[in-house]
Amino acid sequence: MPVLRGLFNRSQEERELDEEMRFHLAAEAQLRIDRGEPADSAERSALRDFGNVTLAREVTRDMWGWGALERAAQDLRFAARMLRKNVAFTAVALAALTLGIGATTAMFSVVYSVLLKPMQFPEPDRLAMVWERQPSGRHNVVQTHNFLDWRSRNRSFLNIAAYVSVPANLSGDGDPVQVPGLRVTAGIFEILGVPPVLGRTIRPEDDAVGAPAVAVLSNGLWQRRLGGRADALGRKVLVNGAACEIIGVMPAGFAVPSQTADVYLPMQFDLAHPGRGRNYRTVARLKPNVSLAAAQADMQDVAAQLAQERPDDNYRWSAFWGPAAGACYIN
C-alpha cells in the first residue's frame, strides 16, 4: 500500500528535515564562532540568516502533498478537544443526533417495509410482457385486434391480459379528484397471482360490453376515500361520471408491471369496432410445461399468421417478449 508507506515515511521525512535544519543552524553558528563572533550572537545570526524555520518546514512539508490532510486532522483534533471541554453541550448535541438518527431509521424501516419494498409476484420467471415487434426490431405496444387473436390462438399461455392507463375522475362521496386508473382485461390479477384482500376481481362477464359497471380499488384509495371500511364493497363510486360498483380491493403495494393505479376498470373491448391503434401493454403467464423458447416460437407463428391475414396493419410486424419479472416492481 503506497498510501500507508507514505504515512509511515512521513514522520521519518519530518525527522530528517528537522535534523537537516538543526545541522544547518549549528554549522552556520560554528562558522561564525570560528570567525571570532561570540557564541550567543553567532546562534542568533545563524537563525536570522536562515529566515523562518517553521515556515521553511511547512513549505517543504506541503511539497510532500500532505499539507491539506494535516490541516484537516488538526481541525478535527481541535474540535474533539472543544467537545471534551464542553461536556454539557456535547451531551445535548449527541442526544439530539442519536434521537434524530434513531427516529429517522425507525421511520424509514416502517415506510420501507409497508410502502416501498418491492413485492414479488409468485413465480415471476413464468411471467412475461408480450410486445409487438416493429419491422425495425423495436418493441411496441399492442393493437386491440392483434391482442384478441393472440389470446385466442396461442398455445403457450395460461392466460394473457392487456392493460392501458386512463385518468379516473372520482366524484360522488367526498371531494372530486383525479387518480390514475387502469383498464384491464379479465384475468390479469390471476395472471399476476395476486388475490384481492377484499371482495373479488374482474371476471370475464364483467369485461363484456354492456355488463354492469364495476371497479376494483387500490388499497391506498380504499383507505383514503372509504376509510378502509369493509362495507365499501357493493357501494357505488362515480368514475368519469359512470356509477361503478366496488367489487374488490387489492392488497397494499400491488401494481401491474410498470404502471400504478388506484382504480381498475374492465377493458370491455368493443369487438364490433376494435380500432387499429396500438395502445396496450400485455402480460402473460406461461403454462407449467412450456419453455420460454417454445412460447416465443409459438407467438412468432401467431404473429406471422396475422401479418398475412391483415397485411395493412401487420406487414413485417411480429411479436416478441421480455421478462416481466424485472418490470414487476410494485409499490
Binding site: D49, F50, G51, N52, A56, V59, T60, M63
Partner: peptide, 12 residues
C-alpha cells in the same frame, strides 16, 4: 540566499 528557502528547493 535566505537559507530557509534552500530546503523547499532541495526537496522540490
Amino acid at each position: 540566499v535566505e537559507h530557509g528557502s534552500l530546503y523547499p528547493a532541495l526537496h522540490r
